[in-house]
Nucleic acid binder design. Structure first.
Lengths: 242, 242
DNA sequence: TTGGCAAAACTGGTCTGACCAGTTGGTAAT
DNA sequence: ATTACCAACTGGTCAGACCAGTTTTGCCAA
């Protein structure tokens, strides 16, 4: 294959895998040419391909920048109608948990298979912070742990989908943490599930990871239902994000 | 604006306006450079942009050719980042199929469990139209069938997620139809899979439906990979929504 | 010391002309 | 007629120069 094309793919992969964040400046053409050991012309051709694909934007005198649109961009705070549904429609919570069961299983599977050392490090970091915070008010660590796994799946579609559900996810995670964590036996089970999932991914056991992740979400799902059946009112969490 | 970009747009416009037909050979780089009064380097950069957009393909020693399937582009019903990624990045197709495997399995499971008589009627209608059209050019019936099942799941989150991926889905369905349908044995297998899935849902067998739907998507996935491995070029589909 | 301005040192954009590497077709030798 | 080869296409890569915006640097003046 032509060098320019190879380079364009390598660079795009880098960007998609998070090596380069959106709006971040790319190395200059001359630097890339030197580092990759090719002429500047080839670099320019590769960059034009990326430009054609909408991956980067180039500005005269300034440099090339990763397009805002591409990849795991933050500000997609648009879950649209779904956020509304959640309030007053507890079933949405179970609907989401059903979907999460599938997606997180797949994410864990792929993460165990494809995670880079950096990914594993991020996951470890997120895992270590799981129990160091007041569980009642803060669902972020929990969510971060799951998010780290998703990103390690290296499946942009999966990342995109779950990112689109981010706010809704935060709510359900918050809901589950708020309802489940105060019950010691529940909390212990969940901690164990997290640990096992973590170990499975570190040990690179895709099937185990998938099974554990799926089981974990299902456990949360059924626990919530169980609590609700017992008449205990589900603690409602609403959108108060900072 | 940079000359290379201008030229790339002018050439694309030419192609879209019918000035150059698909599979037609474009003038050589040196000719273009002379005629347009610019250096060959600029022409090459412009051509690489078109390559990035999937408008042309370039073959060493032969020339550049207008891609088989070029869009008489309508508007961009933009799904944001992902659509862009697809062009020129076959991996996205497999990424999406991985996700679909999970989601459609779940959708089928829930559909078999929860579908109302009206749902079943809609599914039946969509199913009956599966083979009544030219499969090479129209992927809509296929997509409609899957969509009907998803809607019958009565899980708003699931519907929402898959709806967000609608355009991207259409592309992959189109890609799979275009690549797999011409092969008779493939077409038969897929028809059989569709029929069994349909029957499982009608018979209200959730587990079977899930298994069949998952297997179906996985089959498509692996078939595409197999075709690609054999060196047959995957037919690239770009956005040509009616 | 501080402001402001100009030059230097970046960035990408274009040009030139050379040479390498596949492809094709015609021609000369068999 | 067939085969082998070579010349003339095609795109792919390279080197170095210069132009055109942008940012940094640093000096000089207030």
């Amino acid at each position: 294959m032509a060098i320019a094309q190879e380079i364009s793919f390598r660079l795009e992969q880098l960007i998609l895998d998070g090596g380069l964040a959106p709006e971040q400046k790319m190395p200059s053409e001359r630097q890339l040419a030197t580092r990759l050991g090719v002429s500047r012309a080839v670099i320019r051709e590769a960059l034009h391909e990326l430009q054609g694909r909408g991956v980067i934007e180039t500005r005269h005198g300034k440099g090339s920048f990763v397009s805002q649109i591409v990849s795991t961009n933050e500000e997609h705070t648009d879950d649209g109608p779904l956020l509304h549904m959640f309030n007053g429609h507890p079933r949405t919570l179970y609907d989401l948990l059903e979907v999460r069961e599938q997606l997180e299983g797949q994410a864990a599977y792929l993460a165990a298979k494809r995670a880079t050392p950096q990914d594993l490090h991020r996951i470890t970091k997120a895992f270590s912070k799981l129990d160091q915070t007041d569980p009642l008010t803060n669902a972020k660590p929990d969510h971060n742990f799951h998010q780290a796994i998703v990103e390690a799946s290296h499946n942009p579609v999966l990342v995109h989908v779950l990112n689109g559900l981010k706010n809704l996810m935060l709510l359900t995670v918050q809901a589950s943490v708020a309802n489940l964590n105060p019950r010691e036996e529940m909390r212990n089970k969940i901690t164990t599930q997290h640990r096992r999932l973590y170990q499975a991914i570190m040990a690179r056991k895709p099937e185990s990871a998938k099974r554990l992740a799926t089981a974990h979400v299902r456990f949360v799902n059924e626990s919530m239902k169980e609590i609700e059946r017992q008449g205990t009112k589900i603690i409602r969490v609403s959108l108060d994000r900072a």
